[in-house]
């Protein structure tokens, strides 16, 4: 397996977005691309990442291989890559180590690292194709701000979506608060748009702590999509630009 990405910053950002949620994970390499699926230790949330092969500058994978990686170790290695460096990842069939090569844009600096791999027994979950009742698209910076603002007031947030608005409500020890967003009527910048597609109104409760973990993915994408259906896990998606891939989180709802 060998793959090369022009910008190391993409992998660095992906890692930042998942390392607080997941300790070890298998990076599954196949001719289609690089993917990862992992649950947090309490099995409340799930991370699903896909980088399509065509999003790489070079991608070669003769046979599917899983690279078991400790994310704290990978973070240490990726700290040695400049944001604008290209990154080449290599692994052989034995799958006991992975090689990382970082090259500066001017090609005058080349650094190489080898990471020991681990055997990870991971349960893969089958996520059914779902027609969600409500889909909300909003700026990822707005999502991050709401989670961080409401997180200081309480542990859970009630998300209510109607045709007119999406409302985030918190009820905590010191009091309560809410933020309500209305779909944008004037579209100045596409990245500042709030869009709501609704089959039926939804009203659900989620842990703010996890929503805050997911907000670490905000640097990956200008917009985030929240998909909700009653009594079903929330899906939060950050897309890495057209055709490149995505990072999705799933969070089980709080149930009365």
């Amino acid at each position: 397996f060998e793959a090369r990405l022009t910008q190391a910053s993409l992998i660095k950002k992906i890692l930042e977005a998942i390392k607080d949620l997941v300790t070890d994970a298998n990076f599954d390499c196949s001719p289609e691309g690089l993917s990862l699926q992992a649950m947090d230790s309490s099995h409340v949330s799930l991370v699903s990442m896909v980088l399509h092969a065509q999003g790489f500058e070079m991608f070669r994978c003769q046979r599917a291989v899983s690279l078991g990686i400790n994310l704290a170790s990978l973070t240490k290695i990726l700290k040695c890559a400049g944001n604008d460096d290209s990154i080449t990842l290599r692994a052989d069939e034995k799958g006991d180590k992975a090689e990382f090569v970082f090259e500066s844009q001017s090609q005058d600096r080349l650094s190489e690292f080898e990471l020991k791999l681990m055997d990870i027994d991971s349960e893969h979950l089958g996520i059914p194709d779902t027609k969600y009742s409500a889909i909300v698209e909003m700026p990822s910076s707005e999502y991050r701000r709401i989670c961080s603002d409401l997180g200081v007031m309480g542990d859970t947030v009630r998300i209510s979506v109607s045709k007119e608005s999406v409302k985030f409500q918190v009820d905590g020890d010191i009091g309560k608060g809410s933020v309500c967003l209305h779909p944008s009527s004037v579209v100045d910048k596409p990245t500042e748009v709030v869009k709501i597609s609704l089959e039926e109104p939804v009203d659900m409760i989620f842990s703010i702590r996890y929503l805050n973990y997911f907000a670490k993915a905000a640097p990956l994408s200008d917009t985030v999509t929240l998909s909700l259906s009653k009594d079903f896990p929330l899906q939060i998606e950050f897309k890495f630009g057209e055709q490149m891939g995505y990072l999705r989180y799933y969070l089980a709802p709080k149930i009365d």
Binding site: H43, E123, H124, L125, G126, T156, F232, P233, A252, K254
Partner: peptide, 14 residues
């Protein structure tokens, strides 16, 4: 009071 659901209750294990 509400209880936290787990993902296996919603998704099948492959």
């Amino acid at each position: 009071a509400s209880s936290q659901g787990r993902l296996e209750n919603f998704f099948s294990i492959k």
